[in-house]
Each structure stands twice: as C-alpha cells, then as structure tokens.
C-alpha cells in the first residue's frame, strides 16, 4: 500500500494516480502553492500497477470539488480523487476532461489575441480521445505534446 508511506490525513482530499513527476504542476494548477493553504503531503515516484510510477498529493483540511479537480485532467487524465472525512473515504471520483478549459493552457499561436490582450485563455474540447482542443479565440486546434508544452 504505497499510500501508507505518507501520513494518513484526517480531513481533506487525496489525489492519486498522477503521472510521476507531475505533482508540482498539479498543485500549481489547483492553486495549492500558496503558503496560507493547508498542509500538503506529496509522494512522488511511487510504484504503481497502472502507471508504473505515480505521484500522490494529499491536501489536508480542504475538500476539492469535482469541478476544481477536473482542471488537472490535461496532465493527469487517470487521476482519482478521494475526499477524506474523519480518516475515512467519504467520496471517490475520477478526474474527467471538462468541455471547456479556461485559464490553464496558453494558446501556442503567437498571433492569437489571447496572448496580447487581458483575457483568460479558453479552449473547447473537440475530442477527448485523442485529446484535441480548439482555441476559443483564434480557433486553431492543438493536440498531443503541444498541449502539455503550453500548460
């Protein structure tokens, strides 16, 4: 049980099955890097049957909503989320790709207005498998590596 390597939390959210090495990006996207957030417990490079190696992030004292956690779907498409209350798993769900991705990804098109004006970048999901996104502004589509490079 790799989870036991990190302390069990009494209250909060456990995000499991993050691809190894991506935990920092995950906490950045979720806005958990600020010092006034709760305690974070990180396990990185943990052996995993599904992923080979994985990262786990435990957020103490905060319940993340499904909508919030779905923001990490682009970098951790297989992540699972456990909401822990009084040391027990109260709720469990899988991350899923939302229909719109707002504010996480920069448009790779240098001539896109979203790179020049005060505006939150926004993408529409054209296809989930394989993942393909269309910029709301310049309408270019991006997929694969290009998505990850612009997170």
């Amino acid at each position: 049980m790799p989870e036991l390597k990190v302390e069990v939390i009494p209250e909060g959210t456990v995000i499991d099955h993050i691809p190894a090495g991506k935990w920092l990006k995950v906490i950045e996207i979720l806005g958990l890097t600020k010092p006034n957030g709760g305690t974070l417990l990180i396990a990185s490079n943990v052996p995993s049957k599904k992923l080979g190696r994985k990262d786990i992030v435990k957020v103490e004292g905060r319940y993340l909503s499904e909508e919030e956690v779905n923001k990490i779907a682009l970098i951790a498409p297989n992540a699972t989320v456990n909401i822990v209350k009084d040391y027990k798993i109260a709720e469990k769900f899988k991350v899923s790709i939302p229909d719109e991705i707002v504010g996480i990804l920069r448009c790779p098109n240098p001539n896109c207005v979203s790179n020049h004006e005060y505006v939150r970048p926004k993408f529409h999901v054209v296809s989930k498998e394989p993942l393909k996104l269309r910029c709301h502004y310049c309408e270019r589509t991006i997929e694969g590596e290009e998505i990850l490079k612009n997170l």
Partner: peptide
C-alpha cells in the same frame, strides 16, 4: 478587421452592440 486571430471574438465579448468580423488575421 484586425491582424490578430481571435480579435473579433474578443471584441464581440466586450461589446454590447453586435460585432461583425471582417477578417481576423489568418483565421476567419
């Protein structure tokens, strides 16, 4: 008409009055 792609979409979001795109960069 604007040289940047997506300019008309942005203008349409900002404006209350209707906006018609007469060409935004190489987009539409």
């Amino acid at each position: 008409r604007h040289p940047m792609e997506g300019a008309a979409r942005l203008a349409a979001e900002v404006a209350e009055v209707p906006v018609i795109n007469a060409g935004d960069g190489s987009n539409q």
